[in-house]
Design a protein around this nucleic acid. Sequence first.
DNA 1: CGCAAATATGTCAAATTTGACATATTTCCT
DNA 2: AGGAAATATGTCAAATTTGACATATTTGCG
Lengths: 104, 104
Amino acid sequence: MDAEKKKRLAEKGWVSTSIQDFLGLAPDEMAYIELKLQLSRELRARRNEKGLTQAALAELIKSSQSRVAKMEKSDATVSVDLLVRSLFALDATVEDIAQALTTA
Amino acid sequence: MDAEKKKRLAEKGWVSTSIQDFLGLAPDEMAYIELKLQLSRELRARRNEKGLTQAALAELIKSSQSRVAKMEKSDATVSVDLLVRSLFALDATVEDIAQALTTA
DNA sequence: CGCAAATATGTCAAATTTGACATATTTCCT
DNA sequence: AGGAAATATGTCAAATTTGACATATTTGCG
């Protein structure tokens, strides 16, 4: 299994869990995946708190339900940009994002 | 002046300073720009701490000097992804990034 | 000053990310 | 169970971001 494949899987939660860890990934790749995971968790949490469906959030940010699903799954094709923009659209502040990053 | 133009200028520091504020930008656009500004400051700080030139950092992250310059200037064509990846390449942790975001 | 190293700016083809769409799967009611 | 709403997954053309390059400007040092 090559490194790219492994990263894609890792981002989808298949390889790495809290038990089986990010085996063989470089530290900066790990950090990048972890960051995206935290943001995607925060996104889902905020969306649910507001009682929005993925489709409703998609409309809010002028995207699509499928892309929102991918964001929340931390799909490898989703950028950090899109994640943070979506969080801001859900009224998160920069501080909220910093907080989300430090949360276990 | 349209909103896009204003945002580009704002990201380059022309419109918004600590004195003249982010006039007319939507809250989420402001937050996004602020986030990128914090990351670009942290990038420059870390690079200087390590005594690296922009060209040296560029080599480290397999990019180019000009793109590093744009990152540190928080150019509108630079993504948050590239910024955080570069920070990770300079041994920043997710916590370091969270910390940078909360710093004035 | 003079000049070399560093940084900044503009441009563009190639690479990546995007919204949209179709469709599959899961969740949660009655 | 069964069906409707929500979520997930795969694909792709269009849009955005990228590294690379040329070149301009700034910085710092003799």
